[in-house]
Design a protein around this nucleic acid. Structure first.
Lengths: 345, 345
DNA sequence: ATGAAAGCGCTAACAG
DNA sequence: CTGTTAGCGCTTTCAT
């Protein structure tokens, strides 16, 4: 039942012009007499003509297609990120080919991406093998890594200032008078988790504090629950604060602390997250966390990508977006010691 | 710096065969001698050849492209839905063009969709105007509405059994001994919200119970907060139970009830949601809710769409996926009155 | 089993 | 400003 699509030739015949005139009528800034264009557009309208983007892409060499590669897991950060990235690209005249990637099928995905002759690639998470990166680089398709970076890759990257995030949390917790401070990592293979940790521990050391305990939560709820039990399930001297590498994990950490281990937050344990994703703002968690603007990350990503597409430049660019601490109620506030207290003065 | 892409002609020259031989080597089931194919694939590999999907689509009339139209708002249900739909389509050999739609730009999106000659469309939410529906129908591109239906449209639809969901909740609340039962709707224009409400109130009436109060939350957190204040902020006789049309709203409802109005859940108010989305399972909410399987919805959607693509049939099909109640702790449990109690026996 | 040739729908010179 | 012409890279008859 697929009706044969209307072509520019059909419109040309109907409007009594050449086929190329029709093409021009649909090209912004082409030299067509207004009257002719009007007649053509009318014919096109009555016939229900839509230019064939595939044919256009073939001849012009510009597909106006961007591949968006997103990781296949539930995460309060990536969901809005994908949405906003897609939206921004759309607004700039590009359409998105969405690929939801498992770590082990990036290879097949790269194949498909290349087959559709995309003009650029946004990689939200899946780690490209150097092989795959080469493949993209060789064909000259610009790649921007969103929320990740990889020094060995010929790819641009846009990340939050994750080290600064960790630093801010370290200062905040130390000033809050915490003595035994712990960290729950995400996925140790990711730059995101590593940078947050580095910034965090480095700043702690500056204050003369060493990390009291550490566990890995793999950026998943289940992993976070286990990490929490590991750190707080014993009956020795418990940490009095924990920095969790993502909000997605942090809410589960709070659940386990309160409902399973009967500890109170922040009275007994202060919890700080990272991302400021949607559940962090829920009253039941009211999570103190590091805010990273998905909007800013997305804008920077799209700008970086389109710039590289337009300029044909190959030099990768790295953008770091600033973060700030969003103080809510899940961690003790820094005690501002007045001189009268006599302490530290 | 965009290196000229390798074409089948290049490969043909390198492998000393005709260009059509190369084409056949990349077509499953084409008649090529195994030896020839091997030589061709080797040449292709050394040259870094990838068939041009655009050219292939043009000549064969099959783009292997599906448009996925997703609403532009934060929602714990649509995020995984988009991911799973995309993944399923990918597994079936299709690539997805993702369009994130605002209600007012569906028109432009339909244009773009048609230009890329997609073979099918999955609409996750945005309400197609009848105009737009016609446009798709006329060109014979099958449309499947995911989680929505529209009787006037020439489109298939896949939805949960929303009425049944409402019914289950009504039974559960009545059996739990609740006397003043309220409802918080989502967006009244959506079939989803309307069906849940219809099923709910109809079943209540069967039990001789009439809805005590009702408000509209528009499927947003803010809307849900306002609806809750409206229903529970007064000092008259408060409802003792509320059915909220989505989990996304229900968690905020619980927040407002507990943290703002100082009411306890479920002791003073029972709360039941719908969807069983991720936050419902968090210990801080432990929400009793109606489970709808995104997986099943996605599979049914993809099956319906591909079936229509393959068969060229035009008759729309409607699929309803069953739901069930997931009893957690946010609502009082039905009291099973033993005969000894003497009540109602 | 393979090659030659036609052509999908369009854009991009090039004339006029 | 407009028409003519030549392909973009591929699949698909049609011969051989």
């Amino acid at each position: 039942m697929v009706r044969k699509a209307v072509t520019s030739g059909d419109v040309a015949r109907h409007a009594n012009v050449s086929q190329s005139a029709v093409s021009r009528a649909f090209t912004a800034g082409a030299s067509v007499a207004p009257a002719t264009r009007a007649r053509i557009l009318e014919s096109a309208d009555t016939l229900g003509y839509r230019p064939n983007a595939l044919a256009r892409a073939m001849i012009s060499g510009r597909s106006r297609l961007i591949a968006l590669v997103s990781p296949n897991f539930d995460n309060y950060f990536y969901a809005p990120a994908t949405r906003i990235l897609s939206r921004k690209l759309q607004e700039r005249g590009y359409s998105n080919l969405l690929f939801v990637a498992e770590p082990d099928d990036t290879d097949e995905i790269v194949q498909r991406i290349m087959q559709y002759r995309v003009e650029g690639i946004v990689m939200e998470a899946a780690t490209l093998s150097s092989n795959q990166a080469d493949e993209c680089a060789n064909t000259g398709v610009p790649v921007v890594l969103f929320n990740r970076y990889n020094a060995t890759l010929q790819a641009s990257s846009v990340v939050s200032d994750n080290q600064e995030g960790g630093r801010l949390v370290a200062d905040f917790l130390v000033n809050g008078g915490h003595k035994r401070i712990a960290f729950i990592a995400g996925d140790e293979k990711t730059s995101t988790s590593r940078d947050r940790e580095t910034g965090f521990t480095t700043e702690l050391e500056k204050h003369g504090v060493t990390l009291a305990a550490r566990a890995v939560g793999h950026f998943t709820s289940q992993g976070a629950a286990e990490a929490t039990r590991q750190l707080f399930g014993g009956d020795g001297k418990l940490p009095d604060a924990v920095f969790v590498a993502s909000d997605h994990m942090a809410v589960t950490v709070m659940d386990v602390l309160r409902d399973e281990l009967g500890l109170s937050v922040p009275d007994q344990i202060s919890v700080v997250g990272h991302d400021d994703s949607e559940p962090a703002a829920l009253a039941a968690y009211n999570l103190t966390t590091v805010t990273q603007s998905i909007e800013e990350l997305a804008v920077a990503t799209v700008d970086t990508l389109l710039e590289r597409i337009d300029s044909d430049s190959v030099t990768p660019k790295s953008v770091v977006v600033p973060v700030k601490l969003n103080v809510r109620g899940s961690a003790k506030l820094p005690v501002r010691l007045s001189p009268a207290c006599g302490l530290r003065q």
